[in-house]
């Protein structure tokens, strides 16, 4: 531990303003340095802790970089097959209705192989929270093109850049699910700055509240970075994300509950 010199008197329990959530385990996160997954995992844990729902929470982790999410969150968790988390979560919530059920999925998992499960869980209005971390690339397998990869963006399977004529266009899953009557709250956020972290946390907190109301699917996209896949430093990647990803994936609420929008 490195401590600031001369300010020892500040480091006292009564002055504590921020520490890692008790719902995070002590396991070292398996993500690359600067990866938004860690921040997203952490604020999810914070919300679970702050709202006192640890004993009610059942999470579903995907296949991808966050496959080991169950090692980091101190809640009951299931590891789903690639793309199938919304189907898995459907059954959990139907069979244990008073639980808080979430899936945590990347863009390959949710927007490619799991497109059907995602759309149909949302269309049935399953009373679950889907957290969708979109970094425009397959991170875990080494930076291949994802359905969300931007036009012209280089990846290991689009080495000359994504050619939309032959490789298709980036898929905006969040806009798609927002059109479905089954979704209750759909928003796109990020976790790369303190202000954005606060907003995303607020969105997760809302989703927990909404799940208690049994009104339908909550869907939170977190546009995130992939420093390794994008071949940038974390700080560069966050800047590139703001400049290049956000214009295509603009942040903000896409669908808010009717009751709230008339307020």
């Amino acid at each position: 531990m490195i401590e600031a010199t001369g300010i020892k008197n500040i480091i006292k329990p009564e002055n504590l303003v921020y520490k890692k959530s008790s719902v995070m385990t002590d396991n070292v996160l398996s993500y690359c340095p600067g990866c938004g997954h860690g921040t997203a995992n952490r604020i999810l844990a914070e919300v679970i802790e702050e709202m006192g729902i640890q004993s009610k929470t059942i999470g579903v982790s995907p296949v991808g970089c966050s496959v080991l999410l169950y090692n980091f969150l101190d809640v009951d968790m299931q590891e789903a097959a690639h793309g199938r988390a919304p189907a898995v979560a459907t059954a959990i919530k139907r069979l244990i209705p008073d639980s808080f059920v979430f899936t945590y999925q990347g863009d390959g998992d949710l927007a490619a192989i799991g497109t059907a499960e995602t759309i149909h869980a949302c269309n049935r209005g399953e009373n679950i929270l889907i957290i969708f971390v979109n970094n425009g690339i397959y991170g875990m397998t080494g930076g291949q093109m994802a359905p969300t990869t931007l036009p012209g963006m280089k990846s290991s399977t689009s080495p000359a850049g994504r050619d939309v004529k032959t490789m298709g266009n980036p898929l905006k899953m969040t806009e798609i699910v927002a059109t479905l009557p089954g979704t209750y709250y759909v928003t796109r956020q990020s976790v790369h700055t303190p202000a954005n972290v606060r907003k995303t946390k607020k969105a997760i907190r809302k989703a927990v509240e909404y799940q208690k109301l049994d009104r339908g699917t909550c869907f939170i996209e977190i546009v995130s970075n992939c420093n390794s896949g994008w071949k940038m430093t974390p700080v560069q990647a966050n800047k590139w994300m703001e400049e290049t990803m956000f214009p295509y994936y603009p942040l903000g609420d896409i669908k808010v509950p009717v009751e709230e929008s008339v307020k």
């Binding site: 059942i58 579903v60 299931q78 789903a80 097959a81 199938r84 189907a87 898995v88 979560a89 459907t90 059954a91 959990i92 139907r94 069979l95 244990i96 059907a116 499960e117 149909h120």
Partner: peptide, 12 residues
């Protein structure tokens, strides 16, 4: 999807 729902329910 059906078999993965079975997975989710069985895991409970």
């Amino acid at each position: 999807a059906a078999i993965n729902m079975v997975y989710g329910g069985a895991a409970c």
